[in-house]
């Protein structure tokens, strides 16, 4: 069977989320590289036919077309031979979904803040940054609690898709003007995520740490 195909732009945060997930899951991806900025390839007729919202990335595999990053992560993690990144325990699995939805529904403002700061996207950069920071504080509170419970990751004691989804906006937060100084629990957690097998970086996330 051929590898899943990711429509990819290296500097896009959600594309990195999928490259990271595939790498950690040990799943091979075929990348189709787009010039999103300044080329606006993601608004081309051919791309919009697959992804009508014109968002990156898109994942295609054997006729399946996915446009939502969380669904792509779940699909990759469910492929035969993928490393277990979905907790078997129902409560932990639900907690993973809870935080995946937080990543997409709430922390979408972090993607918007970054696009505004780096890629000339429209938006109120100051307001987007303030809201992103408030949401990262909420994640900081959660990881502080997890630490007190002896659980090193977002959903429980082991790495899950939620960690990989949420690592991205935190690791890239300096791109939109949020330092890591105020987030001790997230710093410790990010160091754990960085040490996981298959971890890869992207521009803006130093190789060294």
């Amino acid at each position: 069977m051929s590898a899943p195909v990711l429509s990819n732009y290296d500097l896009d945060d959600q594309c990195y989320r999928l490259r990271l997930t595939a790498s950690v899951a040990g799943v091979a991806l075929d990348l189709v590289n787009l010039d999103a900025f300044p080329g606006r390839d993601h608004l081309s007729r051919g791309y919009l036919a697959k992804n009508p919202l014109g968002r990156l990335p898109t994942l295609e595999h054997d006729g399946l077309v996915l446009c939502q990053p969380a669904a792509m992560q779940l699909y990759l993690a469910g492929l035969p031979g993928a490393r277990a990144l979905i907790p078997a325990d129902p409560a932990e699995q639900a907690r993973m979904h809870d935080w995946l939805i937080f990543a997409d529904r709430d922390l979408a403002v972090a993607s918007a803040a970054r696009a505004c700061a780096l890629m000339d996207a429209p938006g109120d950069e100051v307001a987007l940054r303030a809201r992103s920071r408030a949401l990262l504080r909420l994640l900081e509170d959660h990881m502080t609690r997890q630490g007190t419970l002896g659980q090193g990751y977002v959903a429980g004691a082991t790495l899950s898709l939620a960690d990989l989804a949420l690592f991205v906006p935190f690791a890239l937060s300096r791109d939109f003007g949020i330092d890591h100084d105020d987030f001790p629990a997230l710093r410790l957690w990010a160091r754990r995520v960085r040490r996981c097998e298959g971890f890869i970086t992207m521009p803006g996330i130093p190789d060294y740490h």
């Binding site: 100084d181 710093r187 410790l188 160091r191």
Partner: peptide
């Protein structure tokens, strides 16, 4: 300026 447990061996952090 920090809790000891939050600065692991081999790591750094900024503060004001």
């Amino acid at each position: 300026i920090a809790l000891s447990r939050d600065i692991e061996a081999g790591s750094s952090a900024g503060t004001l």
